[in-house]
Simulated assay, not measured.
Amino acid sequence: MAARAPVKATTNLLQKFQKWYYNAAGFNKLGLVRDDTLYEDEDVREAVRRLPEKLYNDRMFRLKRALDLSMKHQILPKDMWTKFEQDERYLQPYLKEVICERMEKEEWNKK
């Protein structure tokens, strides 16, 4: 049983560091989530294009609000910040699909 304590302590420490880093990054203070901050290469653009309308509109609202706040040199009130626990990776399933399709096309083109 004593061997499990360090693993649990390490996991707890890692989670605390993740929360600290999430807050230190600052995008949550503008109401953004992690997937809103991805570099928009062709794969990300295609994944965004495939988003359902509701997710796409939510993303555009967050981005426009963040741009407006940034231009005004403001942040949201603390109760409106995106919390680490609430951050959902909404784009990841679409992005994985796009990447798999691209890799498959590249494999086919090699032959």
Rank of each mutant, 00 (worst) to 15 (best):
M1D: 15
A2P: 15
A2Q: 14
A3W: 07
A3P: 14
A3E: 13
P6Y: 15
P6K: 08
K8P: 10
A9C: 11
T10V: 14
T11H: 15
L13Y: 11
L13R: 10
L14I: 04
Q15K: 05
F17L: 13
Q18M: 11
Q18L: 13
Q18R: 06
W20M: 04
W20I: 05
W20G: 09
Y21R: 15
Y22W: 13
Y22L: 03
Y22D: 05
N23D: 12
N23Y: 06
N23W: 10
A24Y: 12
F27A: 02
F27R: 03
N28D: 06
N28R: 01
D35Q: 00
D36R: 01
D36T: 00
L38W: 03
L38D: 12
L38H: 00
E40L: 05
E42R: 09
V44D: 04
V44K: 03
R45L: 13
E46M: 06
A47D: 03
V48I: 10
V48E: 14
V48Y: 08
R49V: 13
R50M: 11
R50N: 05
L51E: 09
L51M: 00
L51G: 02
L55Y: 07
Y56M: 11
N57W: 14
R59K: 02
R59N: 09
R59H: 10
M60Y: 11
M60A: 12
M60I: 09
F61V: 06
F61N: 09
F61A: 15
F61W: 07
R62A: 02
R62W: 05
R65E: 07
R65W: 03
R65I: 09
L67R: 06
D68M: 05
S70M: 14
H73N: 14
L76D: 00
L76T: 03
P77K: 01
K78A: 10
M80T: 15
M80N: 12
W81Y: 06
Q92P: 15
P93I: 04
Y94M: 00
Y94L: 10
L95D: 01
L95E: 02
L95H: 07
K96T: 14
E97I: 09
V98I: 02
I99M: 09
I99C: 12
I99S: 04
C100V: 08
E101V: 08
E101Q: 11
R102C: 00
M103E: 08
E104S: 10
E104H: 04
K105Y: 01
K105D: 15
E106N: 04
E107K: 09
K110T: 15
K110Q: 06
K111M: 07
